[in-house]
């Protein structure tokens, strides 16, 4: 004879229990409310913290230090900004074996000599007393005048521009009609965390040079009000001739 044992029935909580029929819809409501709270916590800060609409920045250059040039005169040659002061390069140590046939230089020695030569040339360069600029300009400025622009983006433009170099062997046509777009994503410390070439130029020499320009560029940290924007949305850079 078998004894009747109480039967355990496992039910899904979502299925509801016939003994407490109100629990099923209640659970669903609770889950929906939780989802809403999580979604609000995720999206509301974005909605409320949305940066002010930015106007398209005007390209601005650092203004060179100098006196404004009379607009009636022919221009002076645009000069590179003076190099930062650096310690004089140490001359290569004289060889003890002064006599005898000339020794073949190692690559390291040749490189050191070349660097020392470049440093000497930089030191020998006389500042151009007629360099045009503004009396309130910067010694490292690259242009005689500038338009008003968004300061941070102007700085970004200047820094990338310093590395914006294309190879001479591309055709004139390609150089004249050069057009490419790269989006860069800037971290809070100014590092370029990612770059995406959204519109290649069509010439591998140029694309390679643009990627190199981005990789070589060191940017300042963005201001707090732009940090999230340039990190999450990125900054679109249109390269033109």
């Amino acid at each position: 004879m078998t004894e009747a044992r109480p039967q355990t029935v496992y039910r899904s909580l979502l299925g509801g229990d016939p003994r407490i029929g109100w629990l099923g819809p209640g659970l669903l409501l609770a889950i929906a409310l939780h989802v809403l709270v999580v979604a609000a916590a995720f999206f509301l800060p974005r909605l409320l913290d949305r940066p002010h609409a930015l106007r398209k920045p005007v390209i601005a250059h650092l203004v060179a230090l100098g006196k404004p040039r009379d607009s009636q005169l022919l221009p002076r040659k645009e000069s590179e900004p003076p190099a930062a002061a650096s310690a004089p390069a140490k001359p290569a140590a004289p060889s003890k074996a002064a006599s005898g046939p000339p020794r073949q230089l190692s690559r390291q020695e040749m490189m050191e000599r070349a660097l020392a030569g470049a440093a000497r040339r930089t030191q020998d360069e006389k500042p151009d007393p007629e360099r045009a600029g503004q009396e309130t300009g910067s010694p490292s400025g690259t242009a005689a005048s500038a338009e008003e622009g968004e300061k941070y983006f102007g700085e970004v433009e200047d820094r990338i521009h310093a590395n914006y170099v294309v190879p001479s062997v591309i055709s004139e046509r390609e150089r004249l009609y050069l057009s490419a777009t790269v989006v860069i994503y800037i971290g809070r410390d100014g590092s370029i965390v990612k770059h995406v070439m959204t519109k290649p130029s069509g010439n591998s020499f140029i694309d390679q040079a643009l990627v190199l320009a981005i990789q070589r560029t060191r940017l300042p940290a963005p201001p707090a009000e732009l940090a999230r924007l340039v990190r999450d949305e990125g900054l679109e850079i249109n390269f033109k001739p």
């Binding site: 398209k56 983006f153 294309v166 150089r175 949305e233 990125g234 900054l235 390269f239």
Partner: peptide, 11 residues
């Protein structure tokens, strides 16, 4: 937000 854009010319 709208992604900012800058133009760089004078390679």
């Amino acid at each position: 937000a709208q992604r900012p854009t800058i133009d760089i010319s004078g390679a």
